[in-house]
Structure formats: structure tokens, C-alpha cells
Amino acid sequence: MSLLKVNKLKVHYPIRGGFLRRVVDQVRAVDGVSFELEPGETYGLVGESGCGKTTTGRAIIGLNKATEGEMLFEGNDLAKLRGSDRRQHTKDIQMIFQDPYSSLNVRKNVLNIISEPLRNFERMSPGEELKRVQTLIERVGLNPESIYKYPHQFSGGQRQRIGIARALTLNPKLIIADEPVSALDVSVQAQVLNFMQEIQKEFNLTYLFISHDLGIIQHMCDRIGIMYKGRFVEEGTAADVYNNPQHLYTKRLIAAIPEMNPEKRFEKTHLRQSINEAYRTDYDSYFDKDGRMFDLKRVSDTHSVALQ
């Protein structure tokens, strides 16, 4: 059984207007998205900014309300659960935030930051709590003496490690990583990413990895979903998507990755031009009359594309 099955998820925001502030239209931030996460895998959600990838992640963890659709976590629909039933799954699903500066409360020291979930879910003596936090902080590669320090005394990469330690505290099954390295220096990005892969094996984690960076997604993910305007464009294994993109939008995205080899640069420019040409001529066969994506269609066992 899959760990998480998202089925036709929609997140709409009302646009109010007119004199009585009636709902005149909807912003379709997420407009009918379906995918499944297998235990232990890393699933990547990619797309340009505003495509709804972050909103999808936030809907799963409960920061946004789903307008419609199901989110089955181990068979229970997170969208319908309320109160204490929903709270049980809080332990199982955790999040790593994009900005390591605003995601840590500057008024709390590391001990208090990391033990916040422990205090919510487990009854521990202060001694046990301290021990647990020290183990975690060591595991994420920070000095155990630093637990009484405050966030401003750490670098961005260290802060993100604190954020990861906090997400690990409750031994979750699924971690939603919302652009976890995009606020970090490039030199630190690789460290944090490799570290995330290490702990994935060790803690047997499933990742929903949200990013706009195609390179990082390729490096991290087993399977990938590409989003555009709140809908899926293409879904498949990393190899499917990178080596055999089917949808025009995906092709344009992949073609936009800078080419490192100077000899192939000319070739790449040609490829881009031909894709752009196709975009102009074949637009109608890839988008419906409202400019929306079609529903996904299976092209192989692992690969689906939004085509007519």
C-alpha cells in the first residue's frame, strides 16, 4: 500500500468583489492533483513559482485547507479528519521549511526549539528531554554544547540542520521538504542535501521534495511530478522525465537547464529554437481552450503525460 495517496486535490481561494463582497471567482492554486508516495521513496514536485507546488505540500500537512479531494495517509483521509484524529498524524508528517531564518523562533534557544514537539506529544522528564535533544543535535552534525544557543548564533546551513532535527524529533514517516536549500549558499546546499539522503536511509523516511531547481530534483528524487498552473503536466521516474520528456512544457523546462559542456552549446541552442517553434505551432494540442492542462494519460507503466 502506498504511504500517501493524493486524489484530485483542489485548493481554491475565493476572489471577492462587487458591493456585497460576494465570491465572484476562484483562484485555482491547486486544481485537481493526484499522485502517490511509496514508503521510502523521494517524490519531487517541480514547477515555476506560483504553480501550486508549495500549496499542495501545505495542504497535505494541514497549513492550508483543501477545497476538494482526498489525501489518504495510510488509508485515512487527512482532509476529513478533525481534532484529535488529525493530531495523531501530526507526528507522522513533518515539514522542513524554506527559510531557515524565519522558521526558527529567535526568542527560543535550540533546546526549546527542538523539544517543542516532544512537549506536545510525549511526557518526558527534563533529563530525558535533554538527552533526546542532544542525540538529535549530534546526529545533524552540530556540537551538543550548542543547545543553549539562540538561532542568531548559527549560520544558514546550521539553522537548516536545526530545522531538520526538529522535524525528526517525533520520528515521522513522511517529511515534506519545501525548497529546503534554496535559501542557502550553493556550497552549503550539497552538504544539506547529502545529509538529507543519509538520514532518509537511517530513519526510513519518505520525502515529498518541493523545488524549482531541476538539477536538485534530479539529484534527489526517484519519481517526479511537474506542475503548471495548479495541474500536473507530466509524472514519471527521474529517467522518464529527464531523458524522455513528452509534454511540450516539460521539454521547454528541460531545455532551459544550462549546458555545462561548451561543445554541446550550439546543439542546445538549436534544440531550444525548435521547441519554441513547436510551442508556437502546436500550442493547441497541449493546452485546452482555457489554457489549462489536460488530465494525465498513461504512456508507460511509470510515465504519465497531460495530453488530449
Partner: peptide, 26 residues
């Protein structure tokens, strides 16, 4: 709007605790 408040929500901290122990000190 800052993420530390969102983080507290995802960590299962009750709203009143977030208000008085996370938001208020700031």
C-alpha cells in the same frame, strides 16, 4: 506569516500556546 508560526502549527502546538509562547515573546 513567518514560518516559525507555521512550524509550530505543524509540530502540533495548540493555538493558544502558539499565541502566548511563540508569538507573544516576539
Amino acid at each position: 506569516e513567518l514560518d516559525y508560526i507555521n512550524a509550530s502549527k505543524t509540530l502540533g502546538t495548540p493555538s493558544w500556546k502558539i499565541m502566548f509562547f511563540e508569538l507573544f515573546p516576539n
